[in-house]
Design a protein around this nucleic acid. Structure first.
Lengths: 242, 242
DNA sequence: TAGTGGTCTAGACCACAAA
DNA sequence: TTGTGGTCTAGACCACTAG
């Protein structure tokens, strides 16, 4: 019934997820693992693997002895904090048309903290990019990215910076962005920031202080992002342990 | 080598995690799955299951063809936002001695929004609890919990409110808190809040607006929490999809 | 090429929930 | 009691990495 490549598990996951999104399992109950295995002609282990991944995503939950169910509560959650990867998608999920504007690009020597965090020599330079994200042409997110110049292996122009950071790094450097460790910091807008985001001074807002790592778990970028929370809300699900 | 109950997977996970924390796998490389299976006298599937859970927790990462490695970058992260379950533990993780003070407890009629979110009748009442968390006797977190009175099945006194909410609900109601959906909201302190947390007015801070659900995915509590971010920082790991 | 993690199978038994 | 998900086994082959 299914073919190899992508993996059977991946295909099974997609199959089930689509049926959930099409509301084909009305009443929230999903067929049993044995039944699904028979339907797709794969082993129960493969189905269990697919369901486990959907469970991690929060799409379904299981009750021993009872069955597997669609998680209606979390189905509507748009931007789950842990899953935010590129802001364009977040804005789309909120129903906005995203666009970007490059406010500034320059090279600078890192300060002590930056050079330590990023493992740079003093003589190296940082590329600093200030980028504004707009939702339906209204400013919502301002990001400042700081990337060691030495990781680039191809030249680029300002227009290339409109692409999502991970895309930009993939295209012009030899390192790939794998994950961020983000710290949530409260602040208030002031000066240039209030102008860029179109907010009155002293408005409270949320910012992320982030370090981006590559697949080798080496830090490759520092970022600071500021959000207009009246246009954008972040949600997350908090559970007991794991 | 291992006995049943708790599950072999759970025991294997604990075994590996402890060895990681004791730094017994210096150089970051963990024995191969086959090797671990042999050492513990279980099947490779069991080991893989244990490792998968550790991977989800961010403790290890795997590279096909190369091996399994300790994730040094995330090992130091204290309060991962997704895993926050009770604030006492968060404070302990930060190295503080936690304590609590009940600032207020009263019953009120819910407003329209509250009654809709919690599925209450207009005639029902809400229990409202204001609780202050202290770290080494300094105020750090203020929470306001709102719980429908009808879910309680045993009487309680003010002292019982010092227990973590999930514990309190478990002991005195017939519903169990299963997870929160939290929204992150920026705000500034004012009035009673600034007094309780010992902050100057207008200091920016982070708050959570939360809805707590039971195991049946029915909402059972509303909460609002405010944090002093100079004493407490929240971190999270953001990855691509899942 | 050898060894690692990734995928997959077929089958077994257990724990739990609902009828 | 029946059927569900939870755990576990033994073994197979594939995809990838490193020496």
């Amino acid at each position: 019934m299914l073919k190899r490549k992508p993996s059977l598990t991946e295909q099974a996951k997609t199959y089930i997820k689509q049926r959930i999104q099409n509301d084909e399992y009305d009443g929230a109950r999903i067929p049993s693992e044995t039944e699904l295995a028979f339907q797709l002609g794969v082993s129960r282990t493969t189905i269990r693997d697919a369901l486990s991944r959907l469970q991690i995503e929060g799409v379904i939950y299981r009750k021993q002895g009872a069955g597997t169910f669609v998680n209606k509560a979390t189905l509507q959650i748009k931007s789950r904090l842990e899953e935010i990867w590129c802001y364009e998608n977040v804005l789309e999920d909120h129903g906005y048309v995203p666009s970007t504007r490059i406010l500034g690009m320059r090279r600078e020597r890192p300060d002590l903290e930056q050079s330590i965090t990023l493992g740079m020599e003093e003589s190296e330079e940082l590329l600093i990019v200030e980028k504004l994200f707009l939702a339906n042409d209204r400013p919502v997110i301002l990001t400042v990215n700081q990337i060691p110049v030495k990781i680039f292996e191809r030249p680029f122009v300002v227009e290339d910076l409109h692409a999502p950071v991970f895309q930009f790094l993939q295209d012009f450097s030899r390192r790939r962005l794998s994950y961020y460790v983000s710290e949530i910091v409260p602040s208030t807008v002031s000066g240039a920031l209030s102008e860029a985001l179109g907010l009155e001074a002293q408005t409270p807002l949320i910012s992320f202080e982030e370090t981006g790592y590559d697949e080798e778990h080496e830090p490759i970028l520092l970022a600071r992002s500021y959000f207009r929370d009246d246009l954008l809300r972040f949600r997350l699900i908090r559970r007991e342990v794991v």
